[in-house]
């Protein structure tokens, strides 16, 4: 879907991006992760030609983007940025309708699509007539997303989309984003420096440093098969929390107690360890029933869960 081949960019004497190559499959979310100044934002902006690369090629749907008119290209790619960049002199409705108007949609179509989006994004109807400065930060970011999604582009680029929000708002909007059906059918490249956010939202993560790709892989691969010390150290601080989120019951299935017979309700084994722990804590009973791949049911309590997780962890490290 999106393919970068040996992309490089220099600003003055600084090599901002060096020989970066990756592919993003259709409907996949790739997160570019790294510290500030690692070249992740530059890489992202080259995909919609806000920045032109010095070397290498970029293909979207097998078409070289340098052969396309940049304005036409950009109208087909959704873009969400940290500072949101809403037009202060446009109402919310006008901000959302910006690209459709450029594409000369008729008024009815714009209106119905706007209505649909603000419902999905939980924006109150009355905000449509308001100006950006009258909205909270979280609401503004929702409008920013609505603006990017309004023409239903197949590709979405996001530059630190939650960076400007406070922690509480960020967590809740992240959850909404994850649940949003529209986003699940899009090919997304997202930039973040927040490891937890990357693990929360990514299908695959591209870890970058000094303009180069360090490692590309699923969150699990990054956790258990870091390619070098940099990759290992980058995750070290939040390692346990990340593991709880990445590993699910199915992964540790063999380390859990024997199967039992249970007629009542049971949870899917796709539950992450983190989610299972939260359920156990809030449960009025000490054990939780989970159903595995072959409909087998196991009963686990907190102790069994942590024991199984530890055994799985040891096995991974010695592999």
């Amino acid at each position: 879907m999106i393919e970068l081949k040996g992309i490089s960019k220099k600003f003055g004497d600084t090599q901002a991006v060096k020989q970066v190559s990756f592919k993003v499959a259709e409907k996949e979310t790739l997160v570019l992760l790294g510290t500030s100044g690692c070249g992740k934002t530059t890489t992202l902006k080259m995909i919609n030609r806000l920045i032109e690369p010095d070397g290498g090629q970029i293909f979207i749907n097998n078409e070289n983007i340098t052969n396309q008119d940049p304005d036409v290209l950009r109208k087909g790619i959704g873009y969400v940025m940290q500072n949101i960049g809403l037009f202060p002199h446009y109402t919310i409705a006008e901000n959302i309708a910006l690209v459709p108007k450029l594409l000369k949609w008729d008024k009815e179509k714009i209106k119905s699509r706007t209505q649909e989006l603000i419902q999905k994004l939980h924006l109150p109807e009355r905000t449509l007539a308001m100006y950006p400065h009258e909205l909270s930060g979280g609401q503004q970011q929702r409008v920013g997303l609505a603006r990017a999604l309004v023409t239903d582009p197949s590709v979405l680029l996001m530059d630190e989309p939650f960076g400007a929000l406070d922690n509480v708002t960020r967590t809740s909007i992240q959850k909404e984003f994850k649940a949003l059906e529209e986003l699940k059918r899009k090919t997304i490249v997202m930039v973040t420096h927040d490891v937890q956010e990357a693990f929360e939202l990514a299908d695959r993560i591209c870890l970058m440093d000094k303009g180069e790709v360090v490692q590309i892989g699923t969150p699990k691969e990054l956790l258990y098969r870091p390619i070098n010390d940099f990759a290992r150290n980058f995750l070290a601080g939040k390692r346990l929390a990340l593991e709880f989120k990445v590993i699910n019951i199915q992964d540790i299935w063999t380390y859990l107690p024997e199967e039992t017979i249970h007629k009542g309700e049971s949870k899917s084994a796709n539950l992450s360890i983190w989610e299972a722990m939260e359920l156990l804590r809030n449960n009025d009973r000490p054990e939780l029933f989970v159903s595995g791949a072959d409909q087998a049911i196991k009963s686990i309590n907190f102790g069994q869960l942590t024991k199984g997780f530890n055994q799985y962890q040891n096995a991974q490290l010695h592999e």
């Binding site: 806000l50 940049p70 873009y79 960049g85 690209v99």
Partner: peptide, 12 residues
């Protein structure tokens, strides 16, 4: 950022 947003939306 407003200018960048305008460019990114595909405005000429």
């Amino acid at each position: 950022h407003v200018k960048e947003a305008a460019r990114a939306m595909g405005m000429s």
